[in-house]
Every structure is written in C-alpha cells, then in structure tokens.
Design a protein around this nucleic acid. Structure first.
Length: 655
RNA sequence: GCCCGAGUAGCUCAGUUGGUCAGAGCAGGCGCCUUGUAAGCGUCAGGUCGUCGGUUCGAAUCCGACCUCGGGCUCCA
C-alpha cells in the first residue's frame, strides 16, 4: 500500500502509512502529543482521533490546552453526565448537552415530572466518576435517519432533533448534535449508552475528570416558553485539576464582589420590599458615590458640546404612538395612567422628548449638530424573573443623549462620539474594551440604502480610528439603524456591555423632523441615540463589582477616617478632620471608645482609602500615621500637609 | 411571565421523625476599659419564625395559595 502525505498547521508535511489515523499522526509527531491528543481537525472538519486520514489532508491535532480541545472535553463530559442521569433515573430522557463558556450543561426530563435536588447532584457526580474511572471508549456510529429514529424511539427530544436534521432545518445550535444532511451520527460507550452527537469526542472517558457539577435550573425546550420545561444541570470542566481550582476560586471571588452583597455591607443601596421588585433606594453613602459619577458625567458633557435638557416622567399616548413605541415596545412599558380622558405612560426611553425639543423651533444646518443630554430616569416593565439588583432594574437613569445632524456630519460625529465614550469610561478605571458593530438586518428595515451605507461605514471608520477591537454582527442592527455596542472588561476579566451608539433613520421620519439647508431647502436630519454608562444604576453596580467595593479616592464616600489613639488625642483628630474638610475632602473622626485595633479593622472593612491614626507623637509634631488601603504596613510620622498634598494629587488624577 | 430552590432579630446563620425551639455571633443601646495599627470586658434590647389559610390536642417544623429573593429560560441597559 502506498504511503500518504498530510500537512500540519505549521506548513510542514508528514508521510504515514496508508490507512493511518489522526492518532497515528500524533504518535508519529511525539509521545507527548499522542498522550495529550483528544481529537483532530482534518481539512477544517473536527473529527475523532480514530478517523483515517485521506491523502493530502491538512491535519491539526487537538489537545485540551486549546479552546477547541476544551470544547470537546466539555462536550464529552456533558455526555457522561447524560449517561449517569439516564442510568440513575430509569425512564428519564434527555435533550441537548452542549459545551458552553467554562463548562457545559445537559437538559433532561425525568419521569413523572420529578426534579433534581442538591443531593441528586452528588449522586450524579459519583456515578460520573465511576464512568470516567472505567475508561470507556467512545465509538462513533453513522446511521440513516430511519435507523436513528428507531434507536432513539422513546426519546422524543432526540427524535425531534433527528427529524429536524433530516428535513434540513438544522440550525446552528443543532449542528452540535448532528450533521445537517441525510445521515446522523451517534456515539456508543459503556453499557450500550447511546447519544446522538455530531462529535468529536475524546477517545475514552478516562480522559475526563476535572469537572464539577454546579447547579440545577429549569430551561424551556429550545428556549421556547410554550414548550416543556426541562431540568438543566450546569457543570464546569477543565483539562487540569489546577485550572478547575482556579476557575472555582474565580467564581468565589466573583460572589464576594456581588454588588448586592457589597451594597448591603457598605450601606449604599437597598431594595425595600414595599417598593416592588427592581426598585432601589439610595442611602447617603451610595447616593454620594452616585453624585460623583453624575457630576463627572455632567462636566464632561458640558465640555463636550452637549446641551442639557430635562423631560417629564410621563407623557400622553399620542407621543408614544407617533414614536412607534406603542407598536414596537408596548410589552416593555408600564401600563398607562388614565387622567382627564387621556392615557399617560411612564417613559421607557427619553428619545421622543428630545425629539420634541428639536422640533420646538426651526433648525438651520448652521445649528447642527444638536446634542441634547439628559440623565433621564426611565421605567421599563422587566420580567419579574429578570430583575437583578442594580444590573437589571425596572427604574433606572440613562446617561442619554440624542444627536441630530446632517448626513454629511455623520462620519465625523461618530468618530468624535466614540472617542468621547472611551475617554469617559477610561476615567472610571476601565482599560479593556471590546466593540460590536451591528449591521442592517436582512428582514424589513427603514431608511435608504445610501444612508445605511454611510452610517455603517462611519461606525466602522470610527472603530478603526479609535483602534478598538470589534466584531461584526451582520444583520444584528435594529430595523431603524446600525449601531456599535461597547463592552468593558472588569478587574476579574468579566465583560459588561455599557455603551451603545445607535443610528436612527426612523424617528426623524415619524416625527417629520426637518432643518433648513444651505440651499434653502428642507432636509431630514439623522438622529443618533447614545448612552455611555447606559444606566447610572447599572454602571454603579458594575463599578462596585469592578472595584470590589473599594472605590478609588475620588469616588469614595468617605476618603479619610481619623482615629485618635486615646481621648486626649481627640482634639487633634478633629483638627486633622477640619483641615481635610477645608481641603474639600470627606473625612470623619472615630473616637477612642473602642480599642484602636477594632477601629482600624472597622475602617478597613468599610474600605475607607485612608485610615489615619494620631497619637502623642503626631500631636507633638503635626503628623499622622497613614494606613492606606491596600498597603502592607502603616506609614508613621507623615506630616499632615504632605498627606493632604498626596491625597489631592490622587483625587485630581481620579485614582 | 415560566421552572426549580429559598425566606428564623438590621446582617450571617443554628434549630424539622410536629411537643420550653424561639437561639448564637456580628451590628445597635448602656456601663466599664483609654487603647500606636484587622474583633477588650460586661450588660440590655430586638423576631407574630415572609403573609394568609388549612391539617393537628399542639405548627418555625406538614399541606395549599400568595408575596419577596436567588439560579435559570426569554429579552435587554
């Protein structure tokens, strides 16, 4: 038999005996790779290691260290989860079990509507480890649709998947389970456990094991609330024990940063039951931080060429009919209040009001762009199950602006707007950004082709100028215009979508907005919606988690806490406090009615940036002992004026 | 909205085969201690055990409904 030659990702070639498999190739390259290999990519297609290689193929060996390898590992772990559950619950059936970010899930339906409890997870975990210890081989089998339907008879969800594949309707999410086309594949392992699956899988269950089952949740079959609710088990899986441990540690850290927990501990915000879900009250310390955020936002907008406007919280239905919100957004709106024969709706958005400001007078091209800014409180009827602290509430305040400009001004306006956006976000300590450009939807949309083109290219150019990484979501724009969304990455690597810059070709039409051009004729302006922080409440919540409650000095509600060592130092402590207050700083004195250690601890726990201790030496020399937040040891004998200068510099630099 | 889970003092929690089971720590008040760097000592007060109804001689404990919260599904800022 003739040899075959395959090429590797680095461009090199290898000659192997005819009939060689991907596993043979891995072994030929090296023993280490042979040990690590779990799958292969042959001519761009993910395959099992046991697949025979065709002559001339390009082959990449997949190891658990790569993203693709991890996906395979997680998918196979999900498969073992299903094997365990179906073994432990006779009569149960299963739906889909894909890999997801950091892990996997699998959806089940138990007999008689039974559900999983925490103790069940332990039993399943134990059974999974038995299967893994048995090191069962995964065997791929190809079948016709008819054969597959017979094999999976009694598993209605699997049959539904097979039928969808057969009819060619398979979409992205189903491709995980089976190939589009006439045939399907399934995998067999252990005691004849079968699961419909496109593959690939790791060679055997012994390759798995660094996983943890995490939680049980309800999930609708195919995400459709009209279809049955399945029992979903979530898990996480990694290629090494260390990675698993690091991930679990990261989750614990994230929980410690939970803004709802921090909001309570630091006395910032609460959600009294009497108000209703998704409605918060701001306590003095939280309100102070919020004020600094808003003050900064206002000052930047003032300097950035924005006009400030204000609008009421409610308006008659006619406004929302004209804007189209009652047609397209009614589900998200609070119900109307009837008064004097009219229906008044709480506003879910500020845009129609800003439009009315624009149309309150005749506009010349010389006036444009008009930029109207408002910290506008809006109310949206979020589903009760979706409400989540400050991150998803029913009442929130947008740092909202609407820009009206000529179409010629669009490119420049977008470029400066994106620059402005990033500059403001950076001031709050965010450094990593990721953008998404959403283009014209394939379905119905409004606006001329030429306008879409101009705006989309304007957005793309702005992203290029800003040097921002971005992905394009083709067809992801709203029907009324393209947009850019900007995510920030927080201190522990989580992305948060904050900013949005959105073109709108619809509202100017609906309100028949016009300006007078240089030619004396009437023209329709282009409208841009934009929010930088998105929602002040949400932004505050994100900041709280980003800083783990330790706000930088410029935002901290209490910047300095002065601790007299004993009563006799109280007067000096008050002098220090007064000096700081005179410098515009927020300082308090914690009198000596508790031991010093206790008070230091309290100050640290409250995450005050500077806890100052003053005793005999300080009274004599006009100094302080500074316990800076995060510092290893206190700095003693620091002249008060030097401390003040340093603090002033820190605040000025917004650190 | 739907599914699952949870709700005991301001906070974190203990207490369930139904019968002194209404408790602890922290926080708070009061008193003592006067402190040099992450929890000093004592003492007092606080809860109709989410709400309403049911089962029972008896319910924090069992059942039902509702409310709120959490995790998901869906949608988004």
């Amino acid at each position: 038999m003739a040899d075959i030659t395959v090429s590797l990702p680095d461009g090199s070639a290898r000659t192997l005996a005819a009939g060689a498999t991907a596993a043979d190739l891995a072994a030929d390259i090296g023993a280490g790779l042979a040990r690590d290999a779990i799958a292969a990519v042959v001519d761009g297609e993910e395959r099992d290691l046991v697949v025979g290689l065709p002559e001339g193929a390009t082959v990449e060996i997949v190891t658990p260290g790569s993203d693709r390898g991890l996906e395979t590992l997680r998918h196979s772990t999900a498969h073992v989860l299903a094997q365990a559950v179906l073994g432990l619950w006779p009569g149960s059936t299963f739906a889909i079990g894909p890999p997801i970010e950091n892990g996997f899930y699998y959806d089940f339906e138990l007999p008689d509507g039974a559900t999983f409890g925490p103790e069940d997870l332990e039993a399943i975990d134990a059974r999974m480890r038995e299967i893994i210890a048995a090191d069962q081989e995964f065997e791929r089998v190809e079948a016709t649709v008819a054969e597959a339907l017979e094999l999976f008879a009694g598993h209605a969800y699997k049959c539904e998947i097979i039928e969808r594949v057969a009819s060619g309707e398979a979409d992205g999410e189903l491709v995980d389970e089976a190939d589009a086309g006439g045939a399907v594949s399934y995998y067999r392992n252990g005691d004849d456990f079968l699961d419909l699956c496109r593959g690939p899988h790791v060679p055997s269950t012994g390759r798995l094991g660094h996983f943890a089952l995490q939680k049980v949740a309800g999930a609708y079959w195919r995400g459709d609330e009209r279809r049955p609710m399945l029992q979903r088990i979530y898990g996480t899986a990694w290629s090494t024990a260390k990675e698993l441990k690091v991930h679990l540690h990261r989750l614990a850290e994230a929980e410690k940063r939970d803004h709802r927990r921090l909001a309570a501990e630091l006395d910032l915000v609460s959600w009294p039951e009497a108000l209703g879900p998704g409605l918060a009250v701001w306590h003095p310390r939280g309100a102070l931080v919020r004020k600094f955020i808003e003050d900064y936002s206002r000052s930047r907008h003032e300097a950035g060429g924005y006009d400030f406007v204000f609008s009421p919280h409610i308006a008659k239905s006619v406004l929302w009919e004209t804007s189209g919100h009652l047609d397209f957004y009614a589900d998200g709106m609070y119900p109307p209040m009837e008064m004097d024969g009219a229906a008044y709706y709480p506003k879910p958005m500020n845009c129609p009001f800003h439009v009315t400001v624009f149309e309150s007078g005749q506009r010349s091209y010389r006036d444009l762009p008009k930029r109207y800014f408002e910290l506008g409180a809006v109310y949206r009827y979020e589903l009760s199950g979706a409400v989540h602290g400050l991150l998803r509430s029913r009442g929130f305040t947008q740092d909202d602006a609407h820009i009206f400009c000529t179409r010629e001004q669009v490119p420049d306006e977008l470029a400066s707007l994106l620059d402005f956006t990033l500059s403001v976000l950076k001031a709050f300590g965010f450094e990593d950004f990721q953008a998404k450009l959403s283009t014209r939807p394939a379905e119905k949309s409004v606006g001329e082709d030429e306008l879409w083109e101009l705006a989309t290219e304007g957005l793309r150019a702005a992203l290029g100028t800003a040097g921002l990484d971005f992905v394009v979501e083709e067809g992801g724009g709203a029907f009324y215009g393209p947009k850019i969304d900007v995510d920030v990455t927080d201190a522990i690597g989580r992305p948060w979508q904050l900013s949005t810059i959105q073109l709108d070709f619809n509202l100017p039409e609906r309100f028949e907005l016009e300006y007078v051009g240089a030619d004396g004729g009437r023209h329709r302006p282009v409208m841009i919606h934009r929010a930088l922080m998105g929602s002040i409440e949400r932004f505050f919540g994100v900041l709280l988690e980003h800083y783990a409650g330790a706000f930088p000095a410029w935002l901290a509600p209490e910047q300095v806490r002065v601790l007299p060592v004993a009563d006799e130092h109280q007067a000096y402590a008050e002098q220090v406090e007064a000096r700081l207050a005179a410098g515009g700083f927020r300082a308090t004195v914690d009198p000596a009615d508790e031991p010093l250690g206790k008070r230091v601890r309290s100050g640290k726990t409250a995450k005050v940036p500077h806890v100052l201790v003053v005793g005999d030496d300080d009274v004599a020399n006009g100094t302080v002992g500074d316990n800076a937040r995060g510092a290893e040891a206190p700095e003693r004998d620091l002249p008060l004026e030097e401390f003040v200068d340093r603090l002033a510099a820190t605040v000025a630099e917004r650190r």
